[in-house]
Design a protein around this nucleic acid. Structure first.
Lengths: 273, 273
DNA sequence: GATAATTGTTCCATTATTTGGAACTTGATT
DNA sequence: AATCAAGTTCCAAATAATGGAACAATTATC
């Protein structure tokens, strides 16, 4: 009850530190993980703003837990434990499991890259991907987070939100102009979201990355309050807007199918009112 | 200094709790992540052995940090933050980066699956994989950990360790008989490790999984104290021991090349003594 | 080669957080 | 209604985290 109320606070003091010790530890972990190379103590000191003594203990604990590794030259790198935890949580993700055959089918139909993404706060996190003949890797983007307001899946997922939730997300969104076509403000985005609600699908017209277009559809799971979506993405030179429009119907169909199966397999979470 | 000394304690009281608050939080996280489905409060209570009040706060914090998600029916699932953290740490892994083209080349040569693994404690963690025509996924095993003593890469990596380190690892190893060919004790394993040191490569003769064989070579990075290896793996019906022996040379060569490049690119970690 | 500057590590009294038992809701079951 | 189980809240005591400052160990500078 007290946690939910945070959103109602008139002005949070710079995102609040959050969860005491754990929050700080994860913040430090993230600081190291998001950095380019190995980070020396002083680098992290600057990034994290923690006092020396505190940071030192925090890092020691993270190393002890295997979340970080300390090299011989004393610099810190991400540890392998993170990979192991992620592997388990990914391969056990029931939602991804349900969606996968549908993604594959869409890929067979279109020949282009197909994504599954889930909304987290103001971002879309890519959870699965099916791609053309390309060597198997953790795949370019699984786990990657992109802003919701300028991606196909993101806008599709936003269209599922209720008025209050949507407002809350938009209030926290920073409209960064990635390309010439990126939404500059909530106003135009809201108008497009209306369209998306009507059509049942969303386009990304080179809004996040130049020369990249996609068509996406929202996946709604009645009873569960997850907001997700799937998309078919391709380079502008190969994928015209006409082509994308033609794919909209199968994408919508796949999204609906996933939603339906998910309800059955995941079970509605102690249903509605 | 005090941490290093832990290994010297005559008998650790069941692995010790470790790093205070953080350790407990991660333990709870792991309990949820390694479970099959969503876990209810009571399930986790039993698994973790924490008192109710403590566990409740721990879970709240993990949810607040995005490491867990609480569903409508109050059960807990792994959150997306873990995936994002892992994505960043994987894609930024400089070692993997160096190794990748070599893995690919080995795959082209053999047509079989190629793995890159790193030793962590008594286990091998798979960090990259190149596989035959198969749809792109996080790939069956990236992040997976297998016992070192019964896998090709594992034994190869163990052969790099000094006497004391090796003893320490073996003391912590539990010899589980996965197949008819699995090592039953440290004695036979040590003998094989001698051979591996002499030959420069290791075989897995269906020791971990029946019908699966591989040939592996250790990657040593002078100056850095990482123990890793690569392997070529295939089903027994297709890959004979003769075939594996023929691949041993190129596997060794690739491993050496990776080691050399790694020294250059990663920089030796503040050299030797 | 001596001195200064930087970086990493340790210490410890103060402070804030965690702890964990028990009481309390809430919702289902008999 | 009464019983049972699951989840949540409370609070004094115990513990762990805090962070400033002193201390090493390196590396840079003169």
């Amino acid at each position: 009850m007290s946690n939910e109320a945070i959103g109602a606070m008139d002005e949070a003091p710079a995102e609040a530190s959050g969860t005491g010790t754990l929050g700080k530890a994860i913040a430090v972990l993230e600081a190291v993980v998001t950095a380019d190379g190995p980070q020396r103590f002083t680098d992290i000191l600057a990034r994290s703003g923690q006092p020396r003594g505190t940071l030192y203990r925090l890092l020691s604990h993270l190393v002890e837990e295997g979340l970080l590794i300390q090299r011989r030259d004393l610099s810190y790198e991400p540890g392998l434990r993170l990979l192991t935890l992620a592997y388990r949580s990914w391969s056990a993700n029931r939602f991804r499991d349900v969606a996968e055959p549908h993604l594959r089918r869409l890929h067979d139909l279109t020949g282009e890259t197909v994504h599954l993404g889930i909304l987290r706060q103001t971002e879309i996190v890519y959870v699965d991907k099916v791609e053309s003949r390309q060597t198997v890797r953790m795949s370019s983007q699984i786990g990657k987070a992109s802003p919701a307001y300028c991606t196909g899946i993101g806008k599709a997922a936003l269209s599922l939100l209720g008025h209050a939730e949507l407002e809350h997300v938009l209030a926290r969104t920073e409209f960064h102009p990635f390309t010439a076509h990126t939404h500059r403000s909530a106003a135009t985005l809201l108008a497009e979201i209306e369209e998306i609600r009507r059509d049942g699908h969303a386009f990304d017209r080179e809004e996040h990355e130049a020369e990249i277009r996609c068509v996406a559809a929202p996946i709604s799971i009645p009873g569960d309050d997850i907001a997700a979506g799937i998309s078919v993405t391709g380079p502008a030179y190969r994928v015209t807007m006409e082509q994308l429009s033609a794919w909209a119907a199968p994408v919508r169909a796949a999204a609906q199918a996933i939603g339906k199966e998910a309800v059955i397999r995941l079970g509605p979470g102690r249903g509605g009112p």
